[in-house]
Structures are given as structure tokens and as C-alpha cells.
Simulated scan of single mutants.
Amino acid sequence: MTRTVMCRKYQREMEGLPQPPFPGARGQMIFDSVSKQAWQEWLAHQTMLINERRLSMMDRGTKVFLEEEMEKFFSNQELTKADGYVPPKT
């Protein structure tokens, strides 16, 4: 049986992650309140930001920036777009 959580992004019960994405309090908070779908969507958005903005994961500022963006993403706030990003037409 899959584990469910009240997803803070979608505000409904959804399938949860199988384990915390990383150790510590932040990883546990994500495990307890973020759905598997929302986490996968965040990873895709984070990858796009890293690639399009040419961010270095060795830079402490990048880590702070991504933590802030992750909080915005799960709280449904306006996100920082990649420079020159044009969303695909549906």
C-alpha cells in the first residue's frame, strides 16, 4: 500500500515519497508534506534553473537560491524564470 500525504502544493491527499529526499529536518518536512508528483515536478524545475542559469552547485549562493525557489514552488508563489525562457505552447 502506498503512503499518502496532504500535499502542500496541491492541497489534497496524494501519494507520498517512499523516503525523505535528504537527511535532516528539511528532508523530513518534505517527506511529511510534499507528494511524489510535486517532488518530481520540483526536480524538473530545479534542473531547468540550474541548466538555463548556468548555476554552480559549488557556490553557496546557488544553494540558498534553490532553497528559496523550492519554498516558493511548494507554496505556489511566483517562481523565478530562467533567463530567456519561453514556455512551450500547448
Rank of each mutant, 00 (worst) to 15 (best):
T62D: 06
M58E: 12
S75T: 07
E69F: 13
K9M: 09
V5W: 00
D59W: 09
R54Q: 15
M48K: 13
V64A: 09
T80I: 11
V64G: 04
I30W: 02
T90C: 11
R3A: 08
R3D: 09
G61P: 02
R60I: 13
K63M: 10
I30A: 01
K9H: 09
Q40P: 01
D59K: 13
M48F: 08
I30L: 13
R26S: 06
Q77C: 05
V86R: 15
P21F: 06
V34S: 01
E71K: 14
R54I: 07
N51E: 13
T62N: 05
Q19W: 11
P18K: 12
M14I: 05
K36C: 09
K89H: 12
P18T: 08
L49S: 02
G84L: 13
W42K: 03
A44S: 14
D83C: 14
R53K: 13
R60E: 12
M48W: 14
K89T: 05
L66G: 03
W39D: 00
N76E: 08
Q11A: 07
E15A: 14
F73K: 05
A44L: 13
Q37Y: 00
T47Y: 11
A38L: 00
Y10L: 03
S35E: 00
V34K: 00
M6A: 02
R26Y: 13
P18I: 04
E71C: 10
T90K: 10
Q46C: 12
D32E: 14
Q11T: 09
F31I: 04
Q77H: 03
R3Q: 10
P23M: 09
L17R: 03
V86I: 15
T80V: 12
E41N: 12
T80G: 03
A38V: 02
T80Y: 03
P88E: 05
C7D: 04
E41P: 01
S33N: 12
M48D: 10
S75Q: 09
G24K: 12
C7N: 04
M29I: 13
A44Y: 09
P87L: 02
D32F: 01
A82D: 03
F22M: 13
H45F: 07
G24M: 09
Q46N: 13
Y10V: 01
M57A: 08
K63E: 08
K89L: 10
F22H: 12
D83E: 15
K72M: 04
